[in-house]
Design a protein around this nucleic acid. Structure first.
Length: 583
DNA sequence: TCTGGGGTCCTTGGGCGT
DNA sequence: TCTGACGCCCAAGGACCC
């Protein structure tokens, strides 16, 4: 807690929805809801127009549609949000080297460390200038909180929303906080809030009066002490510029619960592959493999296994996940599966083997393809007995390195083989369907980016009804399914036929007959220029031709195989960048 | 009328070595 | 040799955040 309000918290207003509105002029001033569009989707962000209908984050999408039937429902385009976020974070770093991003749209800044502000007046000026700079650079508004601690700065930005600035003068915080709901404090969610309410505590003032001992008794040591201090306005946490990643995970919720054990095993394998892809992209390996299973009744189980050393080998993670699955009862059905890796390191067990081998075997000749196992069982039968299913994690790790053989580079770190290599090296991979619409212009996106946009968009009441119907049918058994966010959809009995790979694939081009247009995604037409897909189905694609700087554009419909229509990258929200000419 | 995805942190309880 | 205390690691679950 410092004497001057020089900790700044920036929170962009309804970030995803605002980016979509800035990107698509026809949606400005309208209710925009961004989130998962499947039957089990939830709202990620709702524009302020949508919030007037009662729509809010984390609300089931079906409920949002009832409350706001004429809203524009969009799938998130994380790559675009990421790009905008980088611009904003860049502006923050101009203020101070101490910037702590909390998410794409939120960050703390230590103004004192940047030499920008040492008192209230300078802090306020810096905050106002920042808001103006963000508006100029992105066209978006953000809210700024300024205070002497992180907790209070965050409270302030929340109070300042939307598009405002609030500065909490040190010394006034207890008075300010006292009447606020306990839910205002970070760390008080629905459960703790209910707990406190039952004890007659609903405001921050009452929380402070309850005393530390009482809160520790109710909530446990760490939570109790922390909450009591926060209620008093005490918070010494520094702004931390860099945080190490602690775990990497992927999970999928299925439109329809899975019952078939074979199918469940297959999905776990796919998740393991994707997880390893992410792990390698981040330059990590990990020791603990975690399987997550959410059952039909929403109860969630986790099972984990810690290896003797860190790995980033597909085979090892697959096998561990498969073993863990064997200990889970899935009768009744499974709605979600997840695979994660924690206990991260920036080297692998296989690296150590390779290093040891290189150290002792100099002059023995290189392993040309990196195919030779480097582990203890490299020389044939293991005196301790066979290990056919990789029960020994470390040995399995060595085998994993072998499995990656075709892509392996002698002497290179294990991470040098990317997700693609892993996918290619996988002999048991089931066939995939069409790998998206990226044939002419591949834009590999492991997650919810362009591929994710392959879901539906229903942009306002003038959307093509036919398109919506067709997309709704995507969830039907045996359908072609949809990649990205919708990849778990429509895959009920169609193992391998979903075209749902989250991994980039080489040669992902598809024939014109299979060309599908990700609704909400950006396109370029040879005659009409930049636009975005408003809907598609029954052999047609509807495109609205507008760009961030234009007024609302016109809608035109084309055949899905129209040669003049091509996928495109998002246009910058402000100004005309190179992407504008990318058609 | 239902409840996403990707994380972090905390608590509890058991096993194990000292 | 047995037992309890202690610390550490691991596994599992839960709450919370955006």
């Amino acid at each position: 807690m410092r004497a001057a309000p020089t900790i700044l918290h920036l929170d962009m207003d309804a970030f995803y929805a605002s980016v979509e509105q800035a990107s698509k002029p026809s949606l400005r001033g309208k209710a925009v809801i961004v989130g998962g569009l499947g039957p089990r989707g939830v709202v990620a962000t709702a524009s302020y127009e949508a919030r007037r209908f009662g729509v809010h984050s984390a609300m089931p999408m079906a409920q949002a549609r009832r409350l706001c039937p004429n809203g524009a429902y969009l799938i998130p385009r994380f790559r675009l949000y990421q790009a905008v976020s980088e611009i904003v974070m860049g502006l923050l770093r101009e203020l101070s080297p101490l910037v702590e991003p909390l998410s794409l749209d939120e960050a703390f800044v230590d103004l004192e460390a940047g030499g920008v502000a040492f008192d209230s007046a300078a802090a306020r000026a810096a905050g106002e200038r920042l808001r103006a700079d963000i508006l100029a650079a992105t066209g978006l508004s953000g809210s700024v909180g300024l205070a002497g601690s992180k907790m209070l700065a965050k409270v302030a930005s929340e109070e300042a929303k939307p598009a405002g600035l609030l500065l909490i003068e040190p010394g006034t915080e207890r008075e300010l906080l006292a009447p606020m709901s306990v839910r205002t404090l970070p760390g008080v969610g629905p459960v703790t809030g209910q707990h406190l309410r039952r004890a007659g505590i609903t405001t921050v003032g009452e929380l402070a009066e309850a005393g530390e001992d009482e809160l520790v008794r109710m909530l446990g040591r760490s939570h109790g002490v922390g909450l009591h201090r926060m209620a008093l306005g005490l918070d010494d946490r520094p702004v931390v510029a860099e945080r190490d990643t602690k775990s990497v995970s992927v999970e999928d919720t299925f439109d329809v619960d899975l019952h078939d054990r074979v199918r469940i095993r297959y999905e776990v394998q796919r998740l393991a592959d994707r997880c390893v892809g992410r792990l390698r992209d981040s330059g990590h390996s990990g020791r603990t493999i975690v399987l997550k299973v959410r059952r039909y009744d929403f109860s969630t189980l986790t099972r984990s296994e810690t290896l003797r050393g860190p790995t980033d080998a597909v085979a090892v993670v697959r096998e561990a996940a498969a073993r863990l699955l064997e200990s889970v009862d899935t009768t009744g059905g499974v709605r979600l599966l997840g695979v994660g890796v924690s206990g991260l390191a920036d080297y692998t067990q296989e690296d150590l083997f390779a290093f040891a081998l290189a150290a002792e075997g100099e002059g023995a000749g290189p392993d040309p393809a990196g195919l030779e196992p480097t582990g203890p069982d490299a020389a044939g039968p293991d005196p301790a007995g066979p290990d056919p299913v990789g029960l020994d994690p470390v040995r399995a790790g060595a085998e994993g390195a072998v499995e990656r053989g075709p892509g392996a580079v002698p002497g290179a770190p294990a991470g040098a083989v990317g997700a693609l290599g892993a996918a290619e090296a996988d002999p048991s991979a089931l066939p995939d369907g069409p790998a998206g619409t990226s044939g002419t212009r591949p834009s590999p996106d492991g997650g919810m980016g362009a591929a994710g946009a392959d879901g539906d968009v229903e942009a306002g009441s003038d959307r093509p009804a036919a398109a919506a119907e067709v997309h709704a049918a995507d969830g039907a058994p045996g359908s072609a399914g949809t990649p990205g966010a919708g990849e778990a959809r429509g895959t009920v009995d169609s193992v391998g036929a979903s075209g749902a790979s989250g991994e980039p694939r080489a040669g992902g081009g598809v024939g014109a007959a299979e060309r599908r247009w990700g609704a909400g995604s950006d396109v370029w037409h040879a005659v009409y220029g930049a636009g975005w897909v408003q809907g598609s189905g029954v052999g047609r694609v509807t495109v609205r031709f507008e760009r961030p700087g234009s007024g609302p554009g016109r809608v035109r419909t084309f055949r899905v195989d129209d040669p003049e229509l091509a996928p495109s990258d998002p246009l910058p929200l402000v100004g005309e960048g190179p992407a504008a000419a990318a058609g």
